[in-house]
Computed example of a mutant assay.
Amino acid sequence: MSQGLSPLSAHLGMLLWAVLVGLSFPAVRVMSELPPFSLTSLRFFIACGGLWWLARRSTEHCPSWRQLPLYGLMGLCLAGFFAAMFWAAYHATALSMATLFVTVPLLAFLLGLGFGVERLAWRLPAILALGATGALGLAFAQAVGQGGRLQFGFGEAVFFLGCLSTALYPVLSKWGLATGRLPASAAVRTFWSLGLGAVLIGLLGLAVEPVGRLATMTGPDLLLLVYLGLFSTSLTFWLLQRATAVLTPGAVTAYSYLVPFVSMLLLFARQPERVGWIWLPGSLLVIMAIMLLLRNGRAPA
């Protein structure tokens, strides 16, 4: 389904991805009292339900035995990131986690070089460095006045492994496409990787969480979970897989720099007094990096 997709269309899709991910954070905070691993597993299963009608239209909707190990590894990447993120939230500072997450696009670029799906050139790393600087500026602006501090301990080390895991996800997708191991349909790739990720993180939830607390879920909680599953999971991962077909892993993951900018806009809409000039340098650098990525998207593939 990605055949005929232009690089510019892929970039615009990732802009929508950043907006949807940024808008999902307030909804996630509302449900923070529920067991996170089990909740994420349910969210992934709901996303798979939303993708099934699209995935089944492909002639390759049933994976072969040769594809299952790769799908399993992609699912493990998703489960590994969310497990590390939720665990580190209680053992690492928010500023340290935000700073470490900035490394994801560069990690994706380096891993992509190792898998042969990135080219060794200066332009993309320069754009990634610009975006990373801007994202760091936004992270420090958010930490000002909140007692945020930068440190690196065991919690941060675990979260860094999670960052490595999520950086590997688009690299494996691109490598699977380049070698013919994965189908052309973005919906099929998204469906099976999310499905196996849901199983893995669900098993982790059964092992370490009081799953019975899910019974306290209210009607509004369920509606939020369905929204998160269909829009900030199903649609966002489909957009990511769609863009992976024509962009490199480093370019795809670079849009994560835009997520704190979207969060800043939400904060400004709700509490404009909390957004001052300290947010401006980071915002400008992130916008410049995204504009450079979009400009590259207008070039022939």
Rank of each mutant, 00 (worst) to 15 (best):
R123W: 10
L230G: 01
V275C: 12
L196Y: 09
L68N: 09
Q67D: 09
G114C: 09
A88T: 15
W192Y: 12
T236H: 08
T59P: 11
A243P: 09
G13M: 07
L194T: 13
S6L: 01
F37Q: 11
F160M: 11
V246D: 06
T218Y: 07
F81Y: 15
G80H: 03
S32R: 08
V211H: 08
F25L: 06
F154D: 07
W192I: 13
A178Q: 14
T236P: 08
P249A: 01
L204H: 04
R29F: 12
R56K: 14
G80M: 07
A198Q: 06
M264A: 15
L51Y: 03
P7D: 06
M1Q: 11
V102K: 03
Y227E: 10
T233N: 04
L16W: 02
L107M: 14
F159G: 08
A167T: 10
L225V: 05
S64C: 04
F115I: 04
T253A: 15
F268L: 15
W238T: 15
F101C: 04
S165F: 04
A55Y: 02
V252H: 00
S263E: 05
A10C: 06
P125I: 14
G297C: 07
T253I: 14
A139D: 08
L111E: 06
S58V: 08
F154A: 15
G197M: 05
R29Y: 11
A301I: 13
S232E: 08
A98Q: 00
A157W: 03
R274A: 14
L136C: 14
G176P: 05
E60H: 10
G114L: 13
S64Y: 00
E33N: 05
L285K: 00
I287F: 14
V30N: 03
A129S: 14
S2P: 11
A167I: 10
L239K: 01
T93W: 07
W17F: 15
Y71I: 09
G212K: 01
T133E: 00
I46F: 07
F86W: 04
F160V: 13
L20G: 00
G197P: 11
A92D: 01
R66S: 11
G162C: 07
L285W: 08
L206G: 10
A79S: 13
